[in-house]
Design a protein around this nucleic acid. Sequence first.
DNA 1: TATTTATATATAAATATACGGATACTTAAT
DNA 2: ATTAAGTATCCGTATATTTATATATAAATA
Lengths: 87, 87
Amino acid sequence: MNHEQKRKSEILKALGHPIRYCIVEGLLSGERNVASLMDCLSLPQPTVSRHLQILKSAGILGVQRAGNEMHYSVINTEARKVVESLR
Amino acid sequence: MNHEQKRKSEILKALGHPIRYCIVEGLLSGERNVASLMDCLSLPQPTVSRHLQILKSAGILGVQRAGNEMHYSVINTEARKVVESLR
DNA sequence: TATTTATATATAAATATACGGATACTTAAT
DNA sequence: ATTAAGTATCCGTATATTTATATATAAATA
């Protein structure tokens, strides 16, 4: 088991949770801030926020502030490919 | 969050572990029985066996007995695509 | 039948993860 | 300065996962 394999399995682990998978799929279709994801998932805000952090520290999401909103987007090519391979 | 998304995230979860990712990658390159995977991973046999069961119950692996040996193979198209998308 | 080889299962301990609620932080508007 | 909106963090508890050890099963061989 090499380092590349570990790295890739970490991406899959981050995506391997229904909420997080849904978030990434949603972001690939253009949704942006936390509130819109909350509505779409009907989950309490802290829960959504927590999963966003997990995805961010896995290097899958990037974030940019826009006023008081945070705009998240998928910045990781591999994660994007993985989700797209499941279309 | 719909049922499809849950289903897909379960596949990713099963693959989101370094040992299991390594097993599936290995099986796509032709390795077969538990002993050969053990050697490749240098892990105790029960550990390998346990992860094989997890992959099997996730519907990712199929197994066939060949005498003494159990021959595992990747039977899930989506899992195959996911791993190949990370090549 | 007894033994060996290959693989699976059970249990328990350690660790990791999930979730809800309260709260803190940051920016914008008043 | 105060308030409101949007978001992040912390904490406690519940649950799940991982691993090792020990043991069990199943087929092959002696």
